[in-house]
Structure formats: C-alpha cells, structure tokens
Design a protein around this nucleic acid. Structure first.
Lengths: 207, 207
DNA sequence: ATATAATGCGAGCATTCGCTCGCTTTTTCC
DNA sequence: GGAAAAAGCGAGCGAATGCTCGCATTATAT
C-alpha cells in the first residue's frame, strides 16, 4: 500500500527483484537498439521486451535517454576493463611488444559487440554521455601516457603528451575503421597484417 | 490556378524565387542543427526560420530527413573540394612535402565549420547518408592511393591498399580529434607541432 | 499474522510533430 | 491584359510516443 516516489527523481534498486528488473530493462534497450534502431526504441517497446510494465520502467529511469545512457555506460565499462587489463599486463614489456598488444586489444575491444558499438557511437552525443566518454578517453590517455613515460629510454626525444594523443588517435581510428567498415569480412590473416603495419607505424614513430 | 503536385514526390526548383526558397530552407536547417540541436529541428521550425511556410517546405523536400541530408551533402561537397584541390596540387611533390600538405588540409577541412561538422557527424547515420559519405571516403582513398602508387619509388615495399587505409585513417582521426576535442583552444603553434609530428609518423611509416 | 514498505502494473492523457489540402499570390507567356 | 502555370501559404489532422497515476502484488519486519 505504498506510493511515494523514491525521493530522488528515480533510481536505486535495493531488493533482488528490482535489480533484475533494471537489468532486464537495460538488456532490452540494448537489444532493441541493435535490432530495430534508435527510432523504434520507445519506452513502451523497451518495457514490453523486458517483460516489465512502463510504469516500472519509470520507477528506475527518468526517461528513454537514461536507458540508452545506461547501455552506453555498461558497454564502455566492458571496453575499459579490457583496455585496463591490457595496459597492466603490458607495463613491463618493451615498446614494440607493448604496442603490438595494444593494437590487438583495440581491435578486440571494438569487436566485443560491433553492432551495438556502432549504434552507441551514433547515439552517444544525444544522451549527453559525451562527458562520460570523454572521461574514459582521458583515462586511456593517462594510462598510455604513464606507460610511455616509463619507457622514455627506448624513445627519441619527444613531447609525451603529443605522442600519446597521436598514437591513441591513430590506433583507435584504425581499429574502429577496421571493424566497422570492413564489415565482417575480416580474415584473421588480414587482422594480423593490419596489426603488424599499425605497430610498425607507431613504433617507428616513437623511436 | 494550378495545383497538381510536381509529378515526383517533390523536387525541382526552376524559377529563381524557388531556388532561393530551397537555399533558405537548407541554410535554416543548418543553423538550427548547430544552434538548437537535432531534437529541436522540426520541419515547422525550419520553415519558420527560413521565412517560408511548411507547405512550401514540402514542395521541395519529402521530409525532415531530406533537409538534413541536403545539409550534409552541401558540407561534404565543400570538404571534398578542398581535399581534391590539395591532392591535385600535391601530385608532383615528394612524399614528405605531400604528406605535410595533406595533414594540414585535413585539419583545415575539419575547421570549415566545426560545430556543423560535429552535428552532422552525429546525424549522418540516421539520414541514410552513410552510403554517400562512404562514397566520399572511397574517393579519398582512391586519390591517395593513386598518389602513393605514383611515388612507389620513394617508398619501401608495402601493400598500397593497406598503407592507404592506415594513413588515411590515422590522419583523419588526428585532424578530427584535434579540431573537436581540443575545443577552440588551438594555438597556431600547437597546430604546427601536430602537423610536424603526424607528418613524421606517416612519412616514417611509408619509407 | 499483520502492518508497512517496496515493487510492479497498464490504460490512457497530453504533447509533439510530420505532413496535407484548399486556397492565394506571383510569374510567365501569348 | 488575361489565362495558365509555378510558387507559396498555414490551420489543423492524425499518429506516435513519452509519461502519470491509482491500484495490485510481493517482500520485509515485528
């Protein structure tokens, strides 16, 4: 017999049942985004697919944007986890080995869920998540920068910030275009060649 | 006393007045996209800002998407013109000079109208203009590839398609990030340094 | 077992927005 | 000058969709 909207706009989810509801909603949002596109992604439809009522949806999310934002966030966290792991793992390797690994990981990260990645890349601006994406970007830069710093001896005299900016931009773009443009027509051999070449370019640049 | 909707869905614009109307509509669309964002860009609002009635709008454009598509098209043509000019101009230069020029142009192209560029980059997918953008991309690749081919002697043994893909991706991304991330806080000195470094990376990679 | 809080429901209200249609005004052409 | 064609007008229809509200069900606490 309650009713008294959670103090804050909407949020939280303490009991197990409600956490499941939230998960179902986020998952449903992701699925609809991929399968039907952003236009067809209405709150009513999300609720329907999640097997939840619209009312419940609005208990946890202030609106459609928030749902998309949640999906973006989840996906970004998945990617960042992979990237962080790689950068840790690579800390003691020399530049050439390290860069090769990072390039590989960049491509792998984009491959986690290419279709979702594509849709999210399109929708990120709209949801005001640009700031958060920016944050992730900064973290990547910081991590890479730190690695470069620790390997200065192997590198030529160079402005580390600029080198980081250039290398990260280049690697990200190549990974992005590789996965998104070349469709699914990506032979393993092709990937290996691209990794080789990208590594060559970056390593050659750094020293 | 006519009336008999132009045979085709809508289109053409023969008289001077109507061409002006079309221009006003496209221009208004661009302005609203930049100043108010995609959500606020309704056909009613576009007509209002263009100083034209909604009815007239629908005489020339089958819908909102078509308007946005027209803006995208216009912008892409502007950019491609700059790029084509640069590649012609560069045809007889050695690799290092040529790459430097191309990197510079890439940044300049992104600087034509950064705010519009940003919004359009976000909205391109939605308008089904991906195909057209793809076409422009392919043209860039073709042109760059042709240049590389003609300069093979200055380059190491290398797969030209892969080299093109990697170089174009890297240069574009660096230009893009430079203009969009670093906000308007872009000293000329900074730009020069970035051009130097990017050129160094690409040229170093090619030979 | 009973009270209270948490979670869930879904019909329908309100709003936004694309778009049409019947009509007027301007231009062209003889 | 006048007829026909081209261009322009804008109130308002209809569909889509975000979201609310009053009530029902399930969990927790005592």
């Amino acid at each position: 017999m309650a009713r008294k909207p959670p103090t804050n706009p909407r949020k939280n989810a303490s009991q197990a049942r409600s956490r499941a509801t939230v998960d179902a909603l986020v998952e449903a949002t992701a699925r609809i985004l991929v399968r039907e596109g952003f236009e067809k992604t209405s709150t009513n439809r999300i609720a329907e697919i999640a097997g939840v009522s619209v009312g419940s949806l609005y208990q946890y999310f202030p609106g459609k944007e928030a749902l998309v934002a949640a999906v973006i966030d989840r996906h970004n966290h998945e990617i960042m986890q992979v990237v962080r792991a790689a950068l840790t793992e690579v800390a003691d390797l020399p530049i050439d080995k390290a860069v090769r690994r990072l390039v590989t990981v960049a491509i792998e990260a984009h491959r986690i869920d290419p279709k979702l990645h594509r849709v999210l890349a399109e929708q990120t601006p709209r949801t005001g998540q640009l700031a958060d994406v920016e944050a992730f970007n900064r973290e990547v830069h910081t991590l890479v920068r730190a690695y470069f710093e620790s390997r200065r001896k192997e590198m030529r005299k160079i402005d580390i910030d600029i080198a980081t900016f250039i290398c990260v931009s280049a690697i990200e773009a190549i990974a992005h275009n590789t996965v998104l443009n070349q469709a699914e027509m990506l032979s393993d051999k092709m990937v290996r060649t691209l990794v080789d070449e990208t590594t060559r370019m970056v390593v050659g640049y750094l020293r």
